[in-house]
């Protein structure tokens, strides 16, 4: 599956036609606690990562929020 992830082209090795955000976080080993996630520009709220799906050609942003200010 080919998507745009955080403004870069990303090819995900999978047989599925759709993936959830939870699956993406596992595949990419994203382990940060605080995230802002968007699919095609629309916010995916925390608590819905198991339900929110994306497919080939979609734009996904997983932005890590880290402390400091």
């Amino acid at each position: 599956m080919k998507i745009t992830l955080n403004n870069n082209t990303e090819i995900l090795e999978t047989a599925e036609t759709e993936l959830t955000i939870t699956q993406l976080l596992q595949i990419k080993k994203y382990s940060f606690k605080n995230l802002v996630v968007k699919i095609n520009g629309d916010l995916v709220k925390r608590g819905t990562y198991d339900l929110a799906k994306f497919k080939d050609g979609d734009t996904v942003d997983v932005i890590h929020m880290i402390s400091g200010g």
Binding site: N34, V36, M65, I66, S67, G69
Partner: peptide, 28 residues
């Protein structure tokens, strides 16, 4: 300062004011 507060305000602004620009400081 805190990551969970950054997440909270970004989520709030993107869901209530999708047209409003928000600038976030991450990594300093």
């Amino acid at each position: 300062d805190k990551a969970e507060m950054k997440e909270m305000i970004v989520e709030t602004v993107l869901s209530h004011f999708p047209a409003k620009p928000i600038i976030c400081g991450v990594g300093l």
